[in-house]
Design a protein around this nucleic acid. Structure first.
Lengths: 343, 343
DNA sequence: CTGAAAGCGCTTACAG
DNA sequence: CTGAAAGCGCTTACAG
């Protein structure tokens, strides 16, 4: 790269100090600086296409106007959608974002946090994997601004923006009940992550509130590392066996995808033989013969709010904010009332 | 954030100069520095959990170990997959990456380039929209290292890593021909982007090489801004009308998705009534009743090579490298031989 | 109204 | 073998 113009270059051209130039370009002390000199400085700056060196600025002000974003896997559509919304909101506020994928690995996530902090990001947006409590507590002690995104720990008093997972799942189950399905299975992940636990709790509570039995064999907790195969197995067990279900809810987009694929393989007709409710929005749903009903997360709003809260925290890292956003249930044909299906 | 330890802190603790500390921590002048003092410095550094301030380092060395990545839209699975592979390769080399989405808008892309350069990224990885020639030429003149990813301009002598789009499409068409389909349509984007033109050229050349007629009405160029609706229309026209096709190739993942959805809507049976070849890999394909044959791009390899080339260019910005990677045709049921379908 | 000067946390040519 | 000193490009408290 050819040498970029610096404050000094502008100052020299006009025979003034770099201080003066800095002041006018930053709109400081506006009232106290001569109009003519100010306009001339601005003019030369734009002639030279002056761009301040952010590193020098950052060194001085300890602000980089850069945010760090850690998602589970940027290649996952849900993570990618989060990232996109963060990008847009950050850009609007004059911030750029550095990202990293944790792969649901707490060691990698901690490492990533250190790397980003090292890069002097002003704050962090984190969708943490399980087992990050200690690291996050440490972050909080050193007053690093961060807000948790999508996932959080009820035991930790940190800022977060997440879905109201309990209510989302409760609502989905009630929808199935009101459509005439009473033997409802759940396919979720085997994880300690709170947001997944909440989805499970929503499922169980909804059934109990309607005085329906809950069966252990209807709640399938699948190993995240082996999701496709275990989901396929779960579906087989749920649909055959002594107590087959008449509806299934999936607790994530990956589980929904794997589940629907297995239903195609097994030639289980949806919703005739089995009603289905998926989680998250995916392009893929459009290719399923019976467009699935699904729980839609307000992804953009989630990211937007999280970014805004983080930006606020930059000036007041102790002002913590906790937000649980409501989900939207998009009803399509995969959960049509039984009467409509069988009648 | 609490104050981070600096070189000075370490130096003061041991009563040495910051220069010495800097030398040992950077493994410079190794042979000329006393062993004991070196180990003591390292010890104190790790005790204090010393992390060099990258801004100060960067200000001095003019290197940030940060790469800029510009994709069309990070929320698009193809872009997201590119980003993920860039991230992994960059991380391995000790680099972090800042990203941005151009939304296929050259003005936004130029703006993004400026912002990232402003952030002092060492180099850029760009999947450019149409109309970026001038900006890229300017970049090259100021010797900013960059490599084009996925797309490039044949008129520009820049580094790039992309698919061999011509060959990929040629191959796909030949596959359909050898499966007994001879009336083959193409749904592509109406754009000046070279990689799309190449896909069109591969399609036409393959047909001509086999002495088959090409019809204007079989080549549908869809407005990118209105892809879903126009693709649906294109499919209707291709399958009805005076000269219906017996096979369709799609030139991108979004077109494939939109096309398959329309085929479901129109109850066109694949491959019985219409054979299909898609572009790119998507989770979604698994939910289509007739798993589609598709052109698979070596996304990871593409990103990996591009990142490596960029890293090389950091030291020699004039050493330009151009790579066209071969595609992989994944054959599934959507393009089964006609004999198998109708026999 | 304007500017000289110190300093952010590093690196490195230079001198001993 | 080791360190004093300059400087990267900014910002800002301070003094006029």
């Amino acid at each position: 790269m050819s040498k970029k113009p610096s404050l000094k270059d502008i100052a020299q051209r006009l025979g003034v100090s770099t201080a003066l130039v800095s002041y006018v370009l930053n709109n400081k002390k506006e009232n106290r600086i001569g109009k003519e000199i100010a306009t001339r400085i601005r003019q030369v700056a734009s002639e030279l296409n002056y761009q301040p060196n952010r590193m020098a600025q950052g060194l001085k002000t300890n602000r980089t106007r850069t945010l760090g974003l850690i998602v589970a896997d940027i290649a996952n559509p849900f993570s990618a959608a989060l990232a996109r919304a963060v990008e847009d909101e950050a850009e609007q506020q004059g911030y750029t974002v550095i990202f990293g994928s944790s792969d649901e690995n707490p060691a990698k996530c901690s490492q990533l946090i250190d790397t980003l902090l090292n890069r002097q990001v002003d704050g962090l947006l984190i969708a943490p994997p399980a087992g990050m409590e200690a690291k996050l507590t440490a972050l909080q002690q050193q007053r690093t601004p961060f807000v948790l995104l999508d996932r959080y720990y009820p035991s930790l008093h940190t800022s977060y923006v997440a879905l109201n997972n309990y209510q989302a799942m409760y609502h989905a189950v009630e929808h199935l009940l009101s459509s005439g399905y009473h033997r409802i299975g759940l396919v979720t992940f085997d994880t300690t992550l709170f947001h997944m636990a909440e989805r499970g709790r929503g499922y169980l509570t909804a059934l109990r509130d309607h005085e329906l039995p809950t069966r252990k064999s209807w709640l399938k907790a699948v190993d995240p590392c082996n999701a496709a195969i275990e989901t396929a197995k779960a579906i087989r067990e749920l649909t055959t066996g002594a107590h087959p279900v008449d509806a299934v809810v999936f607790a994530s987009n990956m589980l929904t995808l794997a589940g629907l694929q297995q239903l195609i393989r097994l030639h289980v007709r949806v919703p005739d033989e089995l009603a289905v409710v998926g989680f998250d929005e995916t392009d893929a749903y459009g290719l399923f013969y019976a467009p699935p009903t699904y729980i839609q997360q307000p992804v953009s709003e989630m990211s937007q709010q999280a970014t805004r809260i983080l930006l606020d925290m930059l000036d007041a890292p102790d002002r913590i904010m906790q937000v649980n956003l409501p989900a939207n249930l998009i009803v399509q044909v995969s959960s049509l009332p039984q009467s409509a299906v069988h009648g």
